[in-house]
Design a protein around this nucleic acid. Structure first.
Ligand SMILES: [Mn+2]
Ligand SMILES: [Mn+2]
Ligand SMILES: [Mn+2]
Ligand SMILES: [Mn+2]
Lengths: 152, 152
DNA sequence: TTGTAAATGTAGCCAAGGCTACATAGTATA
DNA sequence: TATACTATGTAGCCTTGGCTACATTTACAA
């Protein structure tokens, strides 16, 4: 079974060898696994930025999930070093969490703007961006930003 | 708790009332839950279309997952009426599965083309499309197609 | 201050989608 | 045909991210 890439085509020789279809699917799965945490840190940052505090109940309502679900995901954020929270006090972001929130928010905005710029109706753009954003790589994000700069 | 939308803004009165942030997150989660099945039916259709048969081992290798994982997901496809398979025979798509595969394949192509058209490098476009495609609504897809028609 | 409502937390369940280890069935070859 | 390799299937485990039901804590108002 050597000398055959996963898509069935013969390898052309030396490495690095272009990414296989399996690589692409794997990366898409990885991106997906970070999507929930990205939405949480973005939302927590927004809540703190506007109202002052991010309570689990508010987070749950805004995300449309039950409060135990929100609490469990917040526990994961803490485990991963993105947030801190003490019982009955609000949730706060660590430095790492803030940085992630900033990047996620910027990317969200660029994705919506790009969609609108190519003609997607505002509502659909807002809706679809919520999922699309988590699969936009740095290279694609840069291309989107370039396009928007050229376009306007 | 009446008269307040989930984002804290007062409702303007009659229905339908614009989608809340919670609605958007919810729909993004729904889209995600269909992503794996979409990739499977597209791949099964491709394998049958080119080689003639879609064996669980080939499916697993192309997706970059273990074969038990592939078999379990194929079982789900059968449960949902998208595929049929008998032990030690290949996997086949039902009418519904074929239709889904056709739509998914078309959408995949449009997404890649759109990304390339706005300036995303080919590699990044191929990669990111694998995740993005599952979050592109019909409205957005139509806008993409329009853009491509205008553009070229 | 005391009583109630809201917020928070805990326990325990589920399905999806991963995995490894092992068993069985088919296929090809010596 | 006997044997070995490959493909398929099964069992059992894990994590994520949902949920409901119930317990506890806090905040607020009477
Ligand atoms: Mn999102
Ligand atoms: Mn977002
Ligand atoms: Mn895909
Ligand atoms: Mn695809």
């Amino acid at each position: 079974m050597f000398e055959l890439a996963a898509d069935g085509l013969p390898k052309r020789g030396e490495l690095p060898a272009e990414p296989t279809q399996a690589d692409r699917f794997g990366k898409a799965r990885t991106a997906q696994s970070t999507a929930v945490m990205e939405d949480y840190v973005e939302l927590i940052s927004d809540l703190i930025g506007s109202g002052g505090e991010a309570r689990p109940t508010d987070i749950a309502r805004r995300l449309g999930v039950s409060h135990p679900t929100a609490i469990k995901t917040i526990a994961r954020l803490k485990r991963e070093g993105l947030a801190v929270a003490k019982p009955y006090r609000g949730v706060f972001l660590t430095e790492a969490g803030e940085h992630l929130a900033d990047r996620v928010r910027a990317r969200h905005r660029v994705v919506v703007d790009l969609l609108v710029a190519v003609g997607v109706p505002r509502d659909a753009a807002e809706q679809d961006a919520e999922g699309i954003e988590h699969h936009v790589s740095d290279a694609t994000l840069a291309a989107f930003a370039d396009y928007l700069r050229r376009d306007r």
